[in-house]
Amino acid sequence: MNAIKTDIGIIGAGPVGLFAVFEAGLLKMRCHVIDALPQVGGQLSEIYPQKPIYDIPGYPEIKAQDLVDRLLEQISPFDPQFTLGERVEIIDKQPDGSFIVTTNENTTVQCKVIVIAGGLGCFEPRKPDIGNLELFEGKGVAYMVKNPELFRDKKIVIAGGGDSALDWTIFLSDVASEVTLVHRGDTFRGAPDSAEKVFSMAETGRIRLILQSNVTTIQGTGHLQQVTIQNRKGESNVIAADHLIPLFGLSPKLGPIANWGLNIDKSAITVNTADFGTNVAGIYAIGDINTYPGKLKLILCGFHEAALMAQSAFKYVYPDEKLTFKYTTVYGVNSF
């Protein structure tokens, strides 16, 4: 457990979350940024790092990752701290008006202001449509491989046809006693090398490869024991399994944000346009995660929202100080 204390807790390390550090820093407010992804940059770094963006003021064209790198350089005078690869689960408002933010790894961030710059939301595993799947979560069903040793000498069924399904099939074949890969199609679009390896491992009997099929039901008493696999002709086959790992990619979901008592409309947090505050005093939402009349999901709009947010958040961080608006051209950037 890691306990952190700061002025502003920023949830989301995408471009808007990063720029919020700058706007807060100009007003002497320190920030700690938390993101579920293992690196900063949000969807820019995760999804389209090499894609050019054409509507950043001052840059006729800039690659997404380059923009993230520039933002990191821009905010470095304000010494932002990061917790990456952890998802914020709980927000607790304290009697004094401050907050304690807790992640899934039990890191806590105590802060006076929360800024949600969550973009598309959290990337969560896509779950297949198997009736009692959730009943077996943690009891044989896992959507990611955190500790491969858990699967040592066990019978594993992997479902999916993407790169991660191929990679884990290959990796776990050395760990598990039996690996079965079930794929809906009959070809793989993933890395050709991995696909070739999986086919040759199936030929030599190191793994079992079941194509044109889906896992339809799962059974067990207390823990997963068997899965039923159905092919396109409707023929079913039951095989023994200690673990089922469905790997169908990640889908952006609002996730725990929906449980924080904030007003939500169409999977976005409603804010007022005066300061991008939510219905909870001290919690702001900026960037793609918020909505208001006329909202445009543009990075540059998120930057604007960050600037107004910081001016408003000042009163929570320095309740006894009067804020006077200052230009960087006059006062420069005073690092911490």
Binding site: G161, R189, N214, L247
Partner: peptide, 11 residues
């Protein structure tokens, strides 16, 4: 699109 359709379950 093909990449996404390929990884979706039960399409």
């Amino acid at each position: 699109e093909l990449d996404m359709l390929d990884i979706l379950p039960h399409t």
